[in-house]
Computed example of a mutant assay.
Amino acid sequence: MGEVRFGVQDVAGVRFAVSPLWETVVSFSAVADPGRYAVHLPWITSVRPLWEDRALARRTAPLRVVAGADPLRPDPPGFLTPPPRCPLAEFEEELAILLAAPAPEPGMDLPGLEDALRAWWEAAVRPYWARIRAVLEADIAYRTRQLAEDGIQEVLARLHPTLSWSGDRLVSPDLAPAVLDLDGRGLTLAPSAFTLRCRLLTGPGPVPPAIVYPARAVGTLWERRGASGEGLARLLGRSRARLLAFTTSPATTTQLAARTGLSLGAVSQHLAVLRDAGLVTSHRYRREVHYATSELGDALMDRAQGGSADPVERPVAAPPQSAGRGGGDHSSRVRL
């Protein structure tokens, strides 16, 4: 049974973040051991040919050694997954933090590991990152609403069934059997699409530790409803019916435009109509607004076509984003 002990200052320093590096490492293990990751089988089926590609296998060989499927060590080694610091962190930023740390073992081939991580990210994770990140940010939006309604204690106690709040401590059998005193550093909460259980990540010095926990609604991550039935298209119009189908997982207007081929203006107009009709909901996170079907929208989709999920399409990778956002900790901080 592991425990994380809070002081007053630590409670004020709770924040949320996402980690593309963590998802990259753990997704690699998922493909290596698909039986433990049944919810991700559509994605695993889609990327399995990449795993078996000889050229990519050579590049990812160092990662296979340290993060491959091992029933005796189901979690990646700690040095490979430093605590995330920013909800908008990019893969290259987190990779730079990893490479700046001293090698955990003498003679470890960090350049080879860097290339392995970058190869797997580019081939198997980055093309799907917009979809994955939308689910993670939807989880964060849910937790922040919960904070406003119930307070930070309820947020911490309801992150995951294995976590509980006791006195001044967060307790879980998933964590290593030790007591970690936060010592005023605060704590980062990081939802994950690929993690199977809660995991405590620690770093050197004043870096806040992080608890990675399974995100909500991961079961919807790889769902893609087929073309809407003709009845629904006649009711809503073909474009709005398609948009409704693509909002079964949270998505921004930019993502929806890319998926449907509609212009950003058209997507915005159709979403406004769907939202006014109560078929989609929206929530803002920093500069982005994410749209998702409401309960009414889900019921309408299920009635129209039975709610079946299709195999995952491999999307076209988005253009590379700039690596730098400036220095410092840009984490989304909860202030009480």
Rank of each mutant, 00 (worst) to 15 (best):
V11S: 04
A12R: 13
G13I: 06
R15P: 03
F16M: 09
S19P: 07
S19G: 08
S19Y: 12
P20A: 05
L21N: 08
L21K: 01
W22Y: 15
E23L: 04
V25H: 02
V26M: 04
V26S: 06
F28D: 06
F28P: 00
A30D: 02
A30H: 01
Y37E: 09
T45W: 06
P49E: 08
L50C: 13
W51H: 02
E52H: 09
R54V: 10
A55N: 10
R59H: 13
A61F: 11
P62C: 08
L63K: 08
A67H: 05
D70Y: 12
P71T: 09
P71H: 07
P82L: 05
C86I: 05
P87T: 10
F91Y: 07
E93K: 08
L95A: 05
I97L: 14
P102H: 10
P104V: 12
M108R: 15
L110P: 00
E114M: 02
A116C: 06
L117M: 05
A124Q: 03
V125W: 01
R126I: 04
Y128S: 07
A134N: 00
A134C: 04
L136K: 01
E137W: 02
A138I: 03
A138V: 07
I140Q: 01
A148H: 11
E154P: 02
L156V: 04
H160F: 06
H160L: 11
L163G: 02
G167T: 14
L170P: 01
V171D: 06
L175F: 13
A176R: 14
D181W: 05
L182W: 12
G184Y: 11
L187H: 05
L196N: 08
L201F: 06
V207H: 01
V212Y: 07
Y213L: 10
Y213P: 01
L221F: 03
R224T: 11
R225C: 04
E230F: 09
R234S: 13
L236Y: 07
L243H: 02
L243I: 02
L243S: 00
T248I: 10
P250E: 07
Q255F: 02
A257E: 13
R259V: 14
R259L: 10
T260A: 12
G261S: 09
L262Q: 03
S263W: 04
L264I: 15
V267W: 01
S268Q: 15
H270S: 09
A272F: 13
R275V: 07
R275Y: 10
G278L: 09
L279R: 00
T281C: 10
S282E: 15
R284E: 08
H290Q: 10
S294F: 04
S294P: 11
E295N: 11
R303P: 00
A304W: 01
S308I: 05
V312C: 01
A318M: 12
Q321M: 14
S322L: 15
A323I: 09
A323C: 12
